[in-house]
Protein backbone atom coordinates (compact mmCIF):
# COMPACT_ATOMS: atom_id res chain seq x y z
CA UNK A 1 0.00 0.00 0.00
CA UNK A 2 1.44 3.32 -0.94
CA UNK A 3 1.29 6.46 1.08
CA UNK A 4 0.47 8.52 -2.01
CA UNK A 5 -3.07 9.53 -0.97
CA UNK A 6 -1.68 10.75 2.31
CA UNK A 7 -0.67 14.33 1.52
CA UNK A 8 1.07 16.53 4.05
CA UNK A 9 -2.12 18.20 5.28
CA UNK A 10 -3.81 14.86 5.99
CA UNK A 11 -0.72 13.55 7.76
CA UNK A 12 -0.58 16.67 9.94
CA UNK A 13 -4.28 16.39 10.57
CA UNK A 14 -3.87 12.83 11.82
CA UNK A 15 -0.95 13.85 14.02
CA UNK A 16 -2.98 16.71 15.44
CA UNK A 17 -5.85 14.35 16.17
CA UNK A 18 -3.50 11.94 17.96
CA UNK A 19 -2.08 14.77 20.07
CA UNK A 20 -5.58 15.98 20.95
CA UNK A 21 -6.52 12.44 21.99
CA UNK A 22 -3.38 11.97 24.11
CA UNK A 23 -3.77 15.37 25.70
CA UNK A 24 -7.43 14.88 26.51
CA UNK A 25 -6.66 11.49 28.06
CA UNK A 26 -3.96 13.08 30.19
CA UNK A 27 -6.01 16.07 31.34
CA UNK A 28 -8.88 13.85 32.38
CA UNK A 29 -7.13 10.81 33.82
CA UNK A 30 -3.62 11.67 34.98
CA UNK A 31 -2.92 12.50 38.60
CA UNK A 32 -0.86 15.48 39.67
CA UNK A 33 -1.21 19.03 38.47
CA UNK A 34 2.13 19.14 36.62
CA UNK A 35 1.27 16.14 34.45
CA UNK A 36 -2.16 17.49 33.72
CA UNK A 37 -0.60 20.81 32.74
CA UNK A 38 1.75 19.00 30.34
CA UNK A 39 -1.22 17.08 28.96
CA UNK A 40 -3.02 20.40 28.44
CA UNK A 41 -0.03 21.58 26.42
CA UNK A 42 -0.16 18.43 24.28
CA UNK A 43 -3.85 19.01 23.73
CA UNK A 44 -3.18 22.62 22.79
CA UNK A 45 -0.38 21.59 20.46
CA UNK A 46 -2.75 19.21 18.68
CA UNK A 47 -5.31 21.96 18.19
CA UNK A 48 -2.64 24.35 16.88
CA UNK A 49 -1.53 21.76 14.32
CA UNK A 50 -5.14 21.42 13.20
CA UNK A 51 -5.21 25.18 12.64
CA UNK A 52 -2.12 24.71 10.49
CA UNK A 53 -3.90 22.06 8.46
CA UNK A 54 -6.89 24.35 8.03
CA UNK A 55 -4.54 27.10 6.83
CA UNK A 56 -2.91 24.79 4.32
CA UNK A 57 -6.13 23.37 2.94
CA UNK A 58 -7.74 26.78 2.64
CA UNK A 59 -4.80 28.30 0.74
CA UNK A 60 -5.69 30.46 -2.22
CA UNK A 61 -4.07 29.75 -5.61
CA UNK A 62 -0.39 30.60 -5.49
CA UNK A 63 -0.28 30.98 -1.69
CA UNK A 64 1.36 28.68 0.82
CA UNK A 65 -1.51 28.98 3.23
CA UNK A 66 -4.50 30.95 4.40
CA UNK A 67 -3.06 33.63 6.73
CA UNK A 68 -6.09 33.93 9.02
CA UNK A 69 -5.68 30.59 10.86
CA UNK A 70 -1.98 31.37 11.22
CA UNK A 71 -2.83 34.65 12.91
CA UNK A 72 -5.31 32.82 15.14
CA UNK A 73 -2.73 30.21 16.06
CA UNK A 74 -0.20 32.83 17.12
CA UNK A 75 -2.77 34.33 19.48
CA UNK A 76 -3.67 30.84 20.68
CA UNK A 77 -0.03 30.04 21.43
CA UNK A 78 0.40 33.26 23.38
CA UNK A 79 -2.71 32.49 25.41
CA UNK A 80 -1.57 28.91 26.07
CA UNK A 81 1.84 30.22 27.13
CA UNK A 82 0.22 32.63 29.61
CA UNK A 83 -1.98 29.84 30.93
CA UNK A 84 1.05 27.60 31.44
CA UNK A 85 2.95 30.38 33.21
CA UNK A 86 0.00 31.02 35.54
CA UNK A 87 -0.39 27.31 36.29
CA UNK A 88 3.34 26.87 36.92
CA UNK A 89 3.30 29.79 39.36
CA UNK A 90 0.40 28.25 41.25
CA UNK A 91 2.08 24.82 41.28
CA UNK A 92 5.29 26.39 42.63
CA UNK A 93 3.40 28.18 45.38
CA UNK A 94 1.59 24.96 46.23
CA UNK A 95 4.90 23.07 46.43
CA UNK A 96 6.29 25.75 48.75
CA UNK A 97 3.25 25.44 50.99
CA UNK A 98 3.65 21.67 51.01
CA UNK A 99 7.31 22.12 51.93
CA UNK A 100 6.26 24.08 55.03
CA UNK A 101 3.73 21.45 55.93
CA UNK A 102 5.50 18.46 57.56
CA UNK A 103 2.54 16.13 56.97
CA UNK A 104 3.23 16.43 53.24
CA UNK A 105 0.19 15.38 51.28
CA UNK A 106 0.90 16.69 47.79
CA UNK A 107 -1.55 16.36 44.99
Amino acid sequence: MSLAPLDAATLYGLMGAILVGLGLYGVVLLGGFLRRLLAFNLLGGGVFILFGVVARRGAGAGFGGDPVPQALVITGIVVAFCATALAITLIERLTEEDGDDPSGGGS
Binding site: L24, V27, V28, F33, R36, L37, F40, L43, A83, L86, A87, L90, I91, R93, L94, E97, S107
Partner: peptide, 14 residues
Protein backbone atom coordinates in the same frame (compact mmCIF):
# COMPACT_ATOMS: atom_id res chain seq x y z
CA UNK B 1 -7.28 27.67 47.98
CA UNK B 2 -4.17 27.14 45.85
CA UNK B 3 -5.31 23.60 45.13
CA UNK B 4 -8.83 24.81 44.40
CA UNK B 5 -7.46 27.47 42.04
CA UNK B 6 -5.30 24.92 40.22
CA UNK B 7 -8.16 22.48 39.82
CA UNK B 8 -10.33 25.31 38.49
CA UNK B 9 -7.55 26.34 36.09
CA UNK B 10 -7.13 22.78 34.75
CA UNK B 11 -10.88 22.42 34.09
CA UNK B 12 -11.08 25.88 32.57
CA UNK B 13 -8.04 25.40 30.32
CA UNK B 14 -9.26 22.03 29.07
Amino acid sequence: TLKAALRYLVFALA
